[in-house]
Design a protein around this nucleic acid. Sequence first.
DNA 1: CAAGAATTGAGGTGCGCACCTCAAAATTTG
DNA 2: CAAATTTTGAGGTGCGCACCTCAATTCTTG
Lengths: 343, 343
Amino acid sequence: MRPTAKDLAEAAGVSLATIDRVLNERPNVSPKAARRVAEAIERIGFVRNPAAVALARNKTYRFRFVLPTSGDQYLSELIAGVDEAREALRADSTEVEAARIAMNDPHHVAKYLTGIDHDALDGVAVMAPESPQVRDALLRLVERGVRVVQFLSGQERLESADYVGVDNFAAGATAGKIVGRFIGERKGKIVIVSETMMALDSIQRRLGFDSIINAHFPQLECLPSLETYADERRADLIIQRTLQHNPDTVAVYVLSAEARIPLTAVWSTQEARPLTIVAHERTPFSEQALMDERIDAVIAQDPGHAVRSALRIMRARSDHRELLASQERIRIEVLLKENLQFA
Amino acid sequence: MRPTAKDLAEAAGVSLATIDRVLNERPNVSPKAARRVAEAIERIGFVRNPAAVALARNKTYRFRFVLPTSGDQYLSELIAGVDEAREALRADSTEVEAARIAMNDPHHVAKYLTGIDHDALDGVAVMAPESPQVRDALLRLVERGVRVVQFLSGQERLESADYVGVDNFAAGATAGKIVGRFIGERKGKIVIVSETMMALDSIQRRLGFDSIINAHFPQLECLPSLETYADERRADLIIQRTLQHNPDTVAVYVLSAEARIPLTAVWSTQEARPLTIVAHERTPFSEQALMDERIDAVIAQDPGHAVRSALRIMRARSDHRELLASQERIRIEVLLKENLQFA
DNA sequence: CAAGAATTGAGGTGCGCACCTCAAAATTTG
DNA sequence: CAAATTTTGAGGTGCGCACCTCAATTCTTG
């Protein structure tokens, strides 16, 4: 039989009350008693029954995802992931919500974060661009006892918070390797498109991409990043112009999550010439384009996994529990037409 | 406040005893009462508290992985995954064990499976090659109330069991696409090595690989599969001979989980000539070879994820619970040097 | 309509732990 | 050494549910 707290009390030669004080880190425990209990835990292999703990505590957890208002299909996938998790966790006394706020003004984001009621919320997963104000607001949240996860965004990593997402330098490098190897011996230029190069993740992806191309594929030349600012007209214009000025373009790399606008522009200008095209994130658009062989590869991070991972982390931190690191590593996935695997 | 069984009883206008009968599918419930309870569950949004259920049931789950005795590094990774899961689930009254049995004689495997004590075990995850006898033994286990998962192996899929693992045809196709695109325009032959072509998964991978090469890369020719039978001497011999007879070889595809023996043979014969090499499964060997750029890509299925998935499935089946399908899909990962991401 | 069967309700117990109170014992302090 | 303080123990309650018993009620069936 698995030992209970009562068995532990006997083994340690103390009362149940003292066991309770030790296990729940209550005050008024002598070092001697603490030692005896710790030793007994080791000796008899005591492990608290999480079901009993959960029942006795009878606590409901509240976690919030803070996501941008703007955003295209990938954001929808994320929202879907949050909804799915909310349903799945309803049974476990865990409330999951998603807030959408405008991310263009860091001051506004910081204000929102500061305004969060810290005893109504156990954790937040924040997807916001880097800014000192946001950074400070996050730190203050942590100080007030809210578990913070930096979520899929190009934030400077905080010591006191967890990060969920891929290494964007590596993601860019992976894209670079795929582009380089798919093109082969041919010489030519690579058009690189981004929504904005202000974001840290875009910068890191670009750096990773360039590092591989420069080191391994000297016959290829990366053009300066084109920024669409999520503006369709602007995207059409600059992409058309760039492709016309560079008839020796052999590849297009879209490093933002949303590839629809730039690639539509590419395909409208450029009908016959075969380009190697690599984009980021699995969305209905990129899925379809992979199936149609209009995109060669997609570098992705699974949004559902990211959401679940953030929740597991916040939950574990709330309970002062360890977590299984290997399960929380978000993979840099390489998707081809062949390994899409629809469920 | 979240509704409890008591609230549900009130809402349905029945007693707690009837609620208990309905929830736990006990006999002697009139259709009328069942309907009233079902309606009330919907109406007030009742969800059983899993912590309370677990505590009251006070059941310990026992799951066993049945793995082959032979096998190299990938099997070690699997065992490590099982060990990790065992530790993680110890708290949840779940015992996880791994049994190693010889898989060469299907009769022996079937006998082992038949000998399993079905009330001492809640579920088994079996990694065994296809055979009618094993298939029947698994079916009998299911009939006796043991949850069965067909685990990472080329079994014919059973209706009454779950499958954890990738679609091997798609995995082979993915390998084919990578090989084809990495080689580019060049003409040449592809050496394909397998431990054995008796296994269903090897056959499926080969079919997937061929289908892509034939359809998209007519300049490449797939040679007949070389079978090593896990014999180092034999591998050296046949691989050397094949490479010498086919000086126009441009790629090697190893479709078994263990790439060490065949690739060592390749590298020893073939020093200078640059070959595109694709193998399966992430192991210390394949990791190192990727880092050293002696392998170009690895097609992998995460063993840790597979183990956790199998356990989640067996647990959910035991509790008659639904599970989150999206979480249980094992991805066909494409690993390059760039996206290895050491933890 | 009576006897049998099926259904329902009331009530109790226990799962393992958190959280609380109060008194007793041990230790520290002036 | 006495008083103040800290530490410890005993004991109780409740979390939400599963599982059990027994009596009361309703429904079948010949």
